[in-house]
């Protein structure tokens, strides 16, 4: 007997219902229900993916419909992987990805830990902290450009207040050394609450009885934290890292609004570069190869990560 999803769905269909639809077998009815979803999936996910892979081996340009489409083999892939500018965008993306994740997880966890304590105004503080992630990235990008403005920006003023440095003497989004950090700060400000919420869910899922048992065993708070809190919240933290990792790998809007990829190419992330190739230069074949490389990278890394996550969960 086959154990496919269709068979299982057919077996799960109540007999009375199956008998009412005359002329169709259980299996056919199951297919009728599943088919629309499969068709939609094929149309909007699988077909574009296969088409993109095909285009990546051609010189197709969507803005030159009259040009002959030639098969160029691996040329697009070779050009991308041999292009130092592409590697620079990868480097910029890696810097952005690593630092945003590290900061968001650290700050998010600390905030969740504090919010998890029972105190007056707990709900109000949670709402206030969560506020940034409710905003549109375009809006956030725009108003942070004002906050970073050297002459009137609040950020420069605060830095100046604490360090005594002239606020007009540095430009967070205009200097090569500062711009990569400028985008990290804004993304951290915006998305730390998301990590905090996931951590909070994790912390609240730990039964009090475990801590009570530890108290009985006279375990210190520090020991409870390392042996109960951290191991039990780890799957949640890993989930947060996965979500933020995938999201930030394709980060576009916030950075475009903030820096436009500059100064120079300092904050040109792969998604910005890919968009320029695909929808400004209209090099469809080349950008398809670029997209395939990014897809394989994200998919590969995410798969390895999900396996690790499952292993942690099983522990």
């Amino acid at each position: 007997m086959s154990n496919s999803t269709i068979d299982r769905a057919a077996q799960a269909t109540p007999p009375a219902m199956a008998q009412r639809v005359k002329g169709f077998s259980d299996r056919t009815i199951a297919w009728i229900f599943v088919a629309p979803t499969i068709l939609i999936l094929l149309a909007i996910n699988i077909f574009p993916l296969i088409w993109t892979i095909y285009l990546s081996f051609t010189n197709f340009r969507v803005n030159r419909p009259n040009n002959e489409v030639e098969w160029v083999g691996l040329k697009n892939y070779q050009r991308i992987l041999g292009d130092s500018d592409v590697w620079m965008t990868m480097q910029a993306t890696a810097h952005f990805l690593i630092w945003t994740i590290v900061l968001q997880v650290l700050i998010g966890f600390v905030l969740a830990y504090l919010i998890n304590k029972k105190f007056r105004g707990n709900d109000l503080w949670t709402t206030i902290i969560v506020f940034p992630m409710m905003l549109s990235p375009a809006v956030v990008g725009n108003f942070w450009t004002f906050l970073y403005q050297p002459q009137i920006g609040l950020f420069n003023y605060v830095v100046s207040f604490f360090t005594g440095v002239d606020p007009a003497s540095f430009s967070m989004i205009g200097e090569v050394d500062l711009a990569p950090w400028a985008i990290v700060i804004v993304d951290t400000w915006m998305w730390t609450p998301f990590v905090m919420l996931i951590c909070l869910a994790g912390l609240r899922s730990i039964p009090d009885s475990i801590y009570e048992a530890a108290e009985c065993d006279r375990a210190t708070k520090w020991r409870q934290f390392w042996t109960i809190t951290i191991p039990m919240i780890l799957p949640f933290l890993m989930l947060a890292v996965l979500f933020r990792g995938i999201e930030n790998f394709k980060m576009f809007d916030l950075v475009v609004q903030l820096t436009g990829g500059g100064p120079g190419n300092t904050t040109t992330l792969t998604s910005i570069d890919l968009k320029r190739e695909a929808f400004e230069k209209w090099r469809t074949g080349y950008s398809s190869a670029y997209a395939v490389i990014l897809f394989v990278t994200v998919f590969g890394l995410a798969s390895i990560y999900v396996k690790a996550l499952n292993r942690v969960k099983q522990r």
Partner: peptide, 8 residues
């Protein structure tokens, strides 16, 4: 000769 922050 440009104002501070005129990088974009």
């Amino acid at each position: 000769c440009t104002p501070p922050g005129a990088s974009d």
